[in-house]
Amino acid sequence: MPFAPVPQAFKSSLKEVVIGAGESAVALGGENVLPLYSFDAPIKNRPKVGIEISDLGPDRSLPELAKFYEGASSAAELAARACAAPGADFVCLWLEGADPNGEDRDVADCVKICREVAEASPLPLAVQGCGSPDKDARLFEKIAEALQGRNVLLLSAKEENYKGIAVAAVTAYGQKIAAESSVDINLAKQLNVLISQLGIAGDSTVMHLGASAAGYGFEYIASTTDRVRLAALAQNDAALQMPVIAPVAADAWSVKESVMSEDEFPEWGPVERRGADMEICTASAMIAAGANAVIVRHPRSAAAVAELISALL
């Protein structure tokens, strides 16, 4: 008897979430198979690659990155440059400077930056907050208002602040949000349920299940993503059928392997190469685990991950 593989396409599929407007808009999710299993059934939308820029500018101590952004100083200029990076499907503006424990840039300034970046970006835009639940809630409400019609993705709404963000961003101004929970399938589900109870449909939300760099508890995020995807497809759990986004940049670039100087660990080689490799490895593994989009910082990473996706799909 010859071997006949048993294709495992599921009756349920992921919801499809579109970000951006016009020709450059990208769709996330929609497939009815496990990540990258195109041999089971066609995958509706390939995983997408976002490239992260910070309102505080790139780390210009990294020579390649400095060269890539040479001559670009404002966030808008950085964004234009990032959009031109090979492999980038969208750009993600990280409002790092909004952090109340850092620069504490005020809401109006942040909104202005977002407007300029949106203006300068031919690709869809995601905006990542500073992580302070309170500040992000205030920021996103105003950003959502200012960028009406751009269909931007706001990262993230968490348990502490989801209400205001979800209602303002999605209901009032028609944007998309990422629902962020911390590496736990039940917390993810609970947040999705709470958001849906505000009358928000699943095609306006993506899940951010938490992030960790390779080697730093990555097994938790990998298994959580596995379980979320199995629940969505095999169990037809509608509260977990949203696409998954994995902003890996911040974690990948803050672990020991990516920050220790070459002086301290000469055999490790240049810092920049290590950081990019950490980012490539983490983002690729997240795509294998089930991310429908990843966000990376280094143009080298974006290119490699895009190449990976083309090679596998």
């Binding site: 409400e141 209400k163 205001g164 209901t171 009032a172 505000l198």
Partner: peptide, 14 residues
């Protein structure tokens, strides 16, 4: 714009 501004906190209960 005012409807949205006031509507959001009303809907969320703030």
């Amino acid at each position: 714009a005012e409807v949205r501004e006031l509507g959001v906190p009303l809907v969320t209960g703030d």
